[in-house]
């Protein structure tokens, strides 16, 4: 039996990195007494996998982890119990048992993430937001109309040139924010700050402070369409 948990991460929790969020959830499962399954062996650990790490500094309303259960638990009960042991800045949106066949693909089905990008008055504070300049908004279609967008992408091992254009599925803007839908997952992955850096570079603007907010993580269905992980 498997369950998919959707949670939000905001406020000061944006300073807590992925590994610590994993540790946080391991402890939270015990506090909430969720019937989670363990691996065998001498030092058993919880069977738990996260959809996609969220970078430090980014907030989100659509984070996911899957857990293996030893017995069934009602969704309502699980959400209540988990939320009782959370801290301000992290809360559980849903807890849904998912069928075994989805387990096969596990979290590897992750295909895309969407974000809201806010322009900040200063890097000191993410609350003081300013409107997206008219000029920027007009430039987005041109940016996306290029043949390729080459950036230097740093990995753990090396630095290489990549064309990120095929990894930007959507990009548009209103006055408040820029919307991005980007490739996410183990095969292809694009971080929103890399897009904004390339965009500012393209329109000849100096670097600016942004706040990134993830809206959801999506999977690709067989017909090629994207759906939030909570809806499959």
């Amino acid at each position: 039996m498997k369950a998919r948990i959707k949670f939000r991460k905001y406020g000061v929790l944006k300073f807590i990195g992925h590994l610590d969020v994993m540790r946080f959830f391991q402890k939270a499962m015990r506090r909430a007494d969720i019937p989670i399954a363990f691996t065998g062996g001498y030092s058993p650990h919880m069977i738990m996998s996260f959809a996609q790490p969220l970078g430090v500094g980014i907030t989100s309303e659509g984070e996911y982890l899957d857990i293996e259960l030893t017995e069934s638990i009602s969704s309502k009960e699980a959400v209540t119990r988990l939320n009782q042991v959370m801290v301000p800045g992290i809360d559980i949106v849903s807890f849904v048992e998912i069928s075994e066949d989805k387990k096969a693909g596990g979290m590897t089905i992750t295909a895309a993430s969407d974000y809201r990008v806010y322009l900040l008055e200063s890097s000191h504070c993410t609350d003081a937001r300013i409107p997206i300049p008219e000029k920027w908004r007009g430039s987005i279609p041109h940016f996306l109309g290029e043949n390729q967008i080459i950036v230097w992408k740093k990995t753990k091992k090396s630095e290489k040139e990549v064309d990120i254009l095929p990894l930007i599925y959507k990009m548009y803007s209103d006055q408040d924010s820029i919307y991005l839908l980007l490739a996410t997952g183990s095969e292809q992955n694009l971080k929103p700050d890399l897009v904004m850096e390339a965009f500012l570079n393209y329109i000849g603007e100096p670097s600016r402070p942004f706040h990134y907010h993830r809206l959801d993580i999506h999977a690709r269905k067989e017909d090629g369409t994207l759906v939030p992980l909570s809806e499959i």
């Binding site: 406020g11 300073f15 807590i16 430090v56 500094g57 801290v87 800045g89 200063s122 890097s123």
Partner: peptide
């Protein structure tokens, strides 16, 4: 929303910002 003594710029620049934000369980 929780107000911090250090601004975001500082917290994102230093090692392990979690040392300074409080808000821990219990």
């Amino acid at each position: 929303m929780r107000k911090l003594a250090l601004n975001d710029e500082i917290l994102l620049k230093i090692e392990k910002p979690a040392r300074y934000i409080g808000n821990e369980v219990n």
